[in-house]
Design a protein around this nucleic acid. Sequence first.
DNA 1: TTTATTTGATTTTTT
DNA 2: ATCAAATAAA
Length: 735
Amino acid sequence: MPDAATDRRVEDLFTGLNAPQEEAVRHVDGPLLVLAGAGSGKTRVLTHRIAHLIHTKHARADEILAITFTNKAAQEMRERVELLVGRAVRAMWVMTFHSACARMLRADAQRLGYTRQFTIYDAADQRRAIKKCLDELDVDAKRFTPRAMQAQISDAKNKLRSPEQYREIVGSYFEQTVADVYEEYERQLHRANAMDFDDLLVRTVNLLELFQEVRDRYQSAFRYVLVDEYQDTNHAQYRLLQLLAGGHRNLMVVGDEDQSVYGFRGADIRNILGFDEDYPDASTIKLEQNYRSTQSILSSANAVVANNRGRLGKELWTEVGEGDSIKIRECDDDHAEARFVAAEIERLGDEGVSREEIAIFYRTNAMSRVVEDMLTRAGISYQVIGGTKFYDRAEIKDAIGYLNFIVNPQDVQAFSRVVNSPRRGIGQTSMSRVLAHANTMGLTPWEAADGAAGVPLLGSAAVKAFGRFMSVMTRLKERAELETPVGELLEDVLRETGYTDALQAERTIEAQGRLENLEALVVAAREYDTRSPDGTVGEFLQEISLLSEQDNLRDDEGLVTLMTLHNAKGLEYPIVFIIGCEDGMFPHSRAIDEGDVEEERRLCYVGMTRAMRDLYMTFARRRSTFGGPGQYGLRSRFLDEIPRDLTDEPERAQIGIRSRAVTSWARASEGSAAAAAMTSTAPAAVFAIGDDVVHAAFGEGVVTGVDPGGVVVVRFAGDGSERRLMADYAPIKRR
DNA sequence: TTTATTTGATTTTTT
DNA sequence: ATCAAATAAA
């Protein structure tokens, strides 16, 4: 019986919510689609709905499954739910797709022929395994790069296509090769008792499809399923949700089709666009009131994304007020751009803005370097999210490789990684012989190495080296099985394998840095031990392999934050700089070539809507790539999609390269009339459709279009690409 | 087997 | 410009 206190608690859940938010929170049974615009309080809706289900006794805590994409989002949701329901949150599954799948697989992996101790391969492990398959199948890795193979295989997996199914639809020699590699790769992974990221989803779907009792178990266990960022789900995730929520149909998905930016990773925007077809009885609720940004920022972002087709249609608004206009800056080159950003940050600092309120976004990781240099020079401390990750460093992967090999003796990848690191006289040849022997005899790499004396063709020095190596490993494995705390075990590993000694002997600054990184890993392991006293090495390994970039984010240390636009999703900052707003950079030329500018535009929308108060968008006329000479580019088409009265730019000419060049120069040279006059009288480069041209970098091509603004479109013979170039600046000549 | 040297690719975005 | 991988030399 609900008492008065409970009633009050339930009512409290609605205070401060707007009408559509409240409607979503009150929804109990049946499918629900919440279209949540940026900053519209979707996490609030999710957490309050969970609390509502609990307080009204519609669900027990352990009947709720809430899924996010990043650990950070999961943790935030967990904390916010805890504020509402207290300790009950501990019984809930609030986690990422990948963690939830890994957890289900640990329980039932043996049904699919894996052990509970399976290893999770990251992208680099995956790449290496694929390379190995290419070698074994005698495929020319120059023609068919591991990278391309990986992309194809991953794509197939995301679509739940097995090697056999893939083989049925091959339409080219390339795809034929992919089918062969895919098949071999799957065999090798399975033999190594390993799964890649995609497998975590695929194998869970397999598990639920093949074993009805497992499916029934989870269907009745999770009576309410909630999914965040639904627009980013791929087909495997879609199918997984279908299987989990198939019985009761209590599925709530929250997403924003305008923020779908992971198409390249297999995310299928049709999942969210077609939700009401999949679930015709679904309620749909739109959240359009924004609680984050000024109206100028919202109107600008709305205007940009309005150029996309295939939207469900949302229009963000706020009660906050207009705010400042969008600040658009043109710079001479990437260095000037970075200098502007650094100077502006200093100026903002004088105004009382603190560093952690500022973020700088860019399209590609490589763009951070110039900015980093400039910030360092200006004495502005910063943190970079993404780029080279901590867990990607060689020494960290080695240390983890040792643990993986101890836990999973079948793990070839881990074995070959650590067997000669540090150097112990076991080279490529000896290692291959042991692995070949393992293969033919059906042994695990561990067993084969342990019985090195029985491996044919192996030299006596190598046999001895293996003996020494394996006696250390055996000792460590015994210790692992005694449930030694992970931190302690890791220290033992580093000491007894001689890893630390080898680094200390190097006496270089790099080695010192590596030792520090390893120390940080030990600290992380000790923290894990404290956090989960009953945890195992295997669980620790799983946890760190599923970490994402955003999980490294710190928010309280007076640091300016740098990251890619993709990493920015879900975050907010009072001041945002989006740099590199040039056609070719953003939208990226690859996307332009592949006709996928809409996803780039959504990315732009994501970036812009991160800003609460001030939004800067900068572009450079010249940008150097690979450290070579600068390439001339055009300002991003997205900038021109922002209504001018919302920006601080003076009148822009509608058409004509002349006036555009004048404006550019006039501002760049701070109003020098001479410079402006000179430019405006310089001879214009004139091209017509059909002209044969030569470009300094791209070679020969033909003009296929002439656009207003002095833009020529050239299709190049070399790589068949079509590029938009600025006639006056691009190094092109008529032939 | 290890180390030094050269080559080649790399830049989209990542759970 | 930088880093990994392939190749040559020790």
